[in-house]
Design a protein around this nucleic acid. Structure first.
Length: 417
RNA sequence: GGAGGCUUCGCCUAGUCUGGUCUAUGGCGCCGCACUGCUAAUGCGGUUUGGGUUAACCGCCCAUCCCGGGUUCGAAUCCCGGAGCCUCCGCCA
């Protein structure tokens, strides 16, 4: 939810942002009209209620013989008030709908264009040269670490089992990520994976990408696609006294992957369920961009520990999520694919989520919404896929980066049994 | 899953049975001022949140007693639905 005052004061800016995203600019005019209509409706309703209050008071204090007349007057007024209140509700609802239809304002400097128009900011590390690279599915099967066949048998396509060293790798990555997060000052959090509709809507996931989200209809709960959802809802309806607040949440993540038919059908790069350690920050609105830089740096620090070659990309406006003002992805090198693939993603949601979730802090001119930001520390399944692929050796074994060894019994090489 | 209790403006609380100056009581905390020779006491005043009006301030107006409906001229108060918390029973890792 963007600041309605920005829309009133500078509709051109909002239109420009919508245009950059490839969204409908005329929604801005719909919103302005709805805002004006609501103001009129509320003001009329207020006036009528004020009259009604005065009459009500005179009824209370009137002499018995004067009552009937007063009551009949009040009755007539009550009809008018009721009608005005219906109009208010309609206007209120229309305003909210119009408001929710508008995505966050795109930050200055975001590249224009769509999915293919990202800008590479930096390329880091040395891309490994592997003669005849095997993909992570093959490597994972040989190591008895990843079992996608039985995943499909038990749960369907895009499900998997991590077994043996695969399961240990997950725990090692979680431990490493949580250790880094805690050292950096994040509060480690184990977050629920099921959330209420308000929270899901507040984080902006029920907008354009509602089809991505699993819903438990019998219980009216949603399965989160990222612990960002729970971590944003954590402080809903609160006034935060001390900022910044930083949380590192671990949870399972569920994605329907609707519309991704045919993409990454093999292996565990794109799955319906995976575990993830996510960083989430609450900061003052004017510090959001700086925090975004810090989140990106922490993501890079983690990938550096995994000794991966990667590039940092600035996502184009048309490919941003509803709530993001800017997004940086880090894509790591997959030798078997001969390309970089997304491993982490950090978004600056500015005050967009905080407005919807009513998360504020005390400012000089009263309470004001905070800014929220999120960034992947480690999406486990995809990271395991990358580690196997990236660190594979000619003999089919896999090199273990030193940062992970203490969590894996000191092993520096994973070899097929 | 069953039974019962509870939810009031930061925290605690009065008010709900018996609808009407409730324009929500009091305490704590907090802020300001005054006074007292002293990081205290006392006194006075202020202190929910959101929106509107304003260049801004002051002020004024509207809404807000968990949420949503309903009854009524009028709802914190009565009725229905929902959420949350608590207690007990059942079940359960």
């Amino acid at each position: 939810m963007i600041d309605i005052r920005v829309v009133r004061d500078d509709p051109q800016r909002v239109r420009a942002s919508q245009r950059l995203r490839g969204e409908d600019e005329s929604l801005v005019d719909v919103l302005l009209a709805a805002d004006e209509a609501r103001r009129l409706a509320v003001s009329r309703g207020g006036q009528l209620r004020a009259e009604q209050k005065i009459i009500g008071r005179s009824v209370a204090t009137a002499a018995p013989d004067e009552r009937p007349l007063l009551v009949s007057t009040a009755k007539a007024l009550a009809e008018t008030v009721k009608a005005a209140e219906v109009a208010e509700n309609v206007a209120e609802y229309a305003l909210r709908a119009a408001h929710l239809a508008i995505a966050n304002l795109v930050e200055d400097g975001v590249p224009p264009g769509g999915e293919a128009d990202f800008v590479t900011l930096e390329t880091v590390g040395t891309v490994p040269s592997v003669e005849h690279p095997r993909d992570h599915t093959e490597l994972g099967a040989a190591l008895k670490a990843i079992d996608t066949a039985r995943g499909a048998k038990v749960s369907g396509a895009r499900f998997y089992f991590l077994t043996g060293i695969g399961a240990q790798l997950e725990l090692a990555l979680v431990n490493l990520a949580m250790a880094q997060a805690a050292e950096t000052g994040f509060t480690p959090v184990i977050a629920p994976a099921l959330v209420r509709p308000e929270v899901m809507e507040g984080t902006g996931f029920l907008g354009a990408h509602a089809a991505e989200v699993y819903r438990l209809a019998d219980d009216d709960l949603y399965l989160v696609g990222t612990s960002e959802v729970a971590l944003a809802g954590y402080h809903a309806d609160e006034i935060l006294e001390e900022l910044p607040l930083r949380y590192a949440g671990f949870s399972s993540c569920f994605r329907r992957e609707a519309g991704s038919y045919g993409k990454d059908t093999k292996g565990i790069i794109r799955v319906h369920w995976f575990d993830k350690v996510e960083m989430f920050s609450y900061v003052r609105a004017d510090e959001a961009a700086e925090e975004h830089g810090r989140l990106l740096a922490w993501e890079r620090g983690f990938l550096d520990k995994l000794e991966l070659a990667y590039r940092v990309v600035d996502i184009a406006a048309g490919d941003l999520g509803t709530s993001a003002a800017r997004k940086f992805d880090i894509e790591a090198w997959f030798p078997s694919q001969g390309t970089y693939r997304e491993l982490t993603s950090t978004s600056n949601c500015t005050t967009f989520q905080a407005r919807r979730l009513n998360i504020r802090t005390r400012g000089v001119a009263g309470n004001e919404p905070v800014a929220t930001l999120n960034g992947t520390l480690c999406a486990i399944a995809r990271t395991i896929a990358c580690l196997l692929d990236h660190h594979q050796q000619p003999d089919g074994s896999v090199y273990v980066p030193s940062a992970l060894r203490s969590w894996l019994g000191g092993r520096d090489l994973l070899s097929p049994a």
